[in-house]
């Protein structure tokens, strides 16, 4: 982001029909955790068009390498992958220098979390989290292992498709986003009530990372490409009185 002083334009209205509704009956936990009243639409102010900024001093170089960042006496078990892509806005402009954080289960579908009791084993060499900053072109990459599917209590026999959780900031509080990415070809994707909370197939497709052989490392790692789109921003062709008087 350029260090521009003074107010720029608002971010585009969020297309809430692109996102899952708060209440998705088949994702049962949402039933008691979904507001019943409509969210009040707010014209953005300086409180919304600003947001936290991060620098390379906040993270370490190894933080984006999940194969090495928790290794104790070897590499983690599993299918080695590179996960890479760009963070863009709705105007297709790159979002540089923004923090991207990920977390995931290990190759057996087990999370390193004190509340996860699934019987698949913890991998002693795998933590399951990483973070990085996008470069000046909005590009990011991680190295990790492909997570496994795992069962969860919703219906008696629900399985989450393999997925990686991703958190992205952008430049403003309005752009804050957490999502999950899935993997091309996974037959569990259409069976999952959390995936099915999405409004349509086009939205589902946007969350499926594509196998990217061109970016794979021969004899080492497969690669998947996942671009993230954050909300775009108006160009202030006319004074919009965001802050002035």
């Amino acid at each position: 982001m350029a260090h521009h002083k003074g107010p720029l334009g608002e971010f585009y209205m969020r297309d809430r029909q692109r996102h899952p509704p708060a209440l998705a009956q088949d994702y049962k936990t949402s039933v008691s955790r979904s507001p019943r009243f409509a969210a009040l639409s707010l014209d953005q102010t300086v409180s919304e068009i600003t947001g936290p900024t991060f620098g390379h001093g906040d993270i370490a170089a190894i933080d984006n390498d999940l194969i090495k960042n928790f290794a104790q006496d070897g590499d983690p078990i599993g299918e080695r992958i590179v996960l890479h892509g760009r963070v863009l806005d709705e105007n297709a402009r790159p979002v540089p220098n923004t923090l991207v954080e990920i977390w995931q289960a290990n190759a057996g579908g087990r999370y390193r979390h004190k509340k996860d009791m699934y019987l698949a084993p913890i991998d002693p060499n795998f933590g399951g989290c990483g973070r990085t900053m996008t470069d000046e072109n909005g590009y990011y990459f991680f190295r990790t292992i492909k997570p496994g599917a795992y069962p969860w209590r919703n219906w008696v026999n629900n399985w989450r498709p393999a997925h990686i959780h991703m958190s992205v900031f952008g430049t403003s509080f309005t752009q804050r986003l957490i999502t999950q990415l899935y993997f091309e070809g996974d037959p569990l994707i259409p069976k999952c009530p959390i995936v099915q909370s999405l409004p349509d197939q086009d939205a589902v497709d946007q969350l499926i990372a594509a196998l990217d052989l061109n970016a794979s490392l021969p004899l080492d790692s497969l690669a998947y490409k996942f671009d993230v789109v954050l909300r775009g921003r108006r160009s202030t062709l006319f004074e919009n009185r965001l802050e002035g008087n």
């Binding site: 996102h19 989290c129 999950q180 999405l198």
Partner: peptide
Amino acid sequence: YLRETPSQTAGPYVHIGLAP
């Protein structure tokens, strides 16, 4: 225009990524 990436729940294990 591109379309904003859809949200998905942070899930029960959000701490792994954001507060390990």
